[in-house]
Design a binder for these strands. Structure first.
Lengths: 158, 158
DNA sequence: GGCGCGATAGTTATAGTATAACCCGGGTGC
DNA sequence: GCACCCGGGTTATACTATAACTATCGCGCC
């Protein structure tokens, strides 16, 4: 494969991601690394087909399954998350930096003005949800919390 | 249009939905009413194309825009919700019964065994989310909370 | 070395979800 | 009458995701 350059920040995160995968015996192949780089480097949640377009010049023969299999791997490893409301993917910086494989309750703030997504990590939300579920005899395996609105930056100059 | 019969429960809810729309000056047309009936009558979240199939025998010429326009209206009126993780729709019984137009924080428990979805209405979750967002200067317009897992009934028998 | 095996990924095709764009007709207000 | 808006018909297409089959690679084992 072609070696690709990403921003310094992304490169640093990729190095940590590699270390995590080595620890776990998971294989962050060239392709998977490349896709993770694309997600991390994007200023906004990245769509699968957008990334496919970015991948193609470096990776001939890339097709939808190419990108979706890489994304599945990255999701399993907790290196990225899917934003359901956008059908797009964001890097899980927390997971990468903390080597935290827990499928912690993921929470997103989606700005409808600038399209950026901020990831929260609020224990209270998870606990409230857990409590409410237990009240119904429901056992939670995973959850998605996504709020849409306007971020501070956009509200200021808006 | 063809007049269609739904379960007694659904019929009752439809009558209330009509009253709500009259109050608001919104037009719950035959088509929209029919689609709302399909959503309310379904034991599980209903997919747009499934409903389209159910619609066709009664409504010749129904096409994707037919159903999506009706769904958009019902979503705006708070009569139904979309379950993002399933790309499917459920009735908002609370909204219909309470004549509550607020886009209250919607919370779902999705059972991966039986496919049923339970709607919660927990104020704490909404408050926690609101607080966390405010901390970032973020103003929330709407939010989705979706937990996947196993419901009490499914856990019991197996 | 040769063999078997599992994981990765190439390739083609298709399923599933949602919207664009344009037209038409019916009701309302003037 | 006619200008306007809204609901809806119709056709086409965009966007998202997966199925199914094949090929290849690396590795342990004998």
């Amino acid at each position: 494969m072609d070696s690709v350059t990403f921003s310094p920040r992304t490169s640093g995160l990729l190095a940590q991601a590699e270390a995590i995968c080595v620890d776990r015996g998971a294989r962050l192949t060239g392709l998977r690394r490349h896709v993770l780089g694309l997600v991390l480097d994007a200023p906004k949640p990245a769509g699968a087909y957008d990334m496919l377009d970015q991948l193609r010049p470096h990776h001939k023969g890339a097709a939808p399954p190419t990108i979706y299999r890489a994304l599945d791997f990255l999701l399993e490893q907790g290196l990225i998350h899917k934003v359901e409301r956008l059908a797009a993917f964001v890097g899980c910086v927390h997971g990468i930096e903390q080597h935290d494989h827990h499928h912690h309750t993921v929470q997103f703030l989606i700005c409808t003005r600038c399209g950026r997504v901020e990831e929260l990590n609020d224990a209270k939300i998870g606990k409230s949800l857990e409590q409410a579920a237990t009240g119904s005899g429901f056992v939670i395996h995973g959850s998605t919390v996504e709020a849409e609105g306007v971020c501070g930056a956009c509200a200021d100059h808006g």
